[in-house]
């Protein structure tokens, strides 16, 4: 009995293709909802600074005088809290992750 079960499993597995995503060779498709990194459409931004105040890690810096919006990717925890509070809806969550870096600055 045990042998038959084993033979059955082996033949079944032989027909299956590999479970692996083969990541670096085959690029991964992310879903629409995936939280990757935050992007700004600066044309609509009014530099109100609401995202800066709501950010739990203080990764966003907004300068109203100089009309400057910056985010530190090494501090952002991609919670998408800033995207939710943005009054002009000019912040959006892209589904690709920010890449690794060899130095902080």
């Amino acid at each position: 009995m045990a042998f038959l079960k084993l033979a059955g499993t082996v033949t079944k597995r032989m027909g299956m293709k590999s479970a692996c995503y083969m990541y670096p060779v085959v690029a991964r498709e992310f879903t629409k909802t995936t939280r990757g990194h935050v992007e700004l459409d600066s044309a609509d931004c009014i530099y109100c600074g609401l995202c800066q105040r709501k950010c739990p890690t203080k990764a966003i810096e907004v300068n109203r005088q100089e009309k400057n919006w910056t985010i530190q990717p090494l501090r952002c925890i991609v919670c998408s809290g800033c995207v939710d509070v943005c009054p002009k809806k000019c912040l959006r969550m892209e589904n690709t992750y920010s890449s690794s870096v060899t130095s902080k600055f």
Binding site: C76, Y97, S100, V101, K104
Partner: peptide
């Protein structure tokens, strides 16, 4: 090497 992400994705870790 610094790998950002919370939590860092496996793809990101491989990179």
């Amino acid at each position: 090497v610094y790998i950002p992400g919370c939590a860092a994705r496996p793809e990101s870790i491989i990179d």
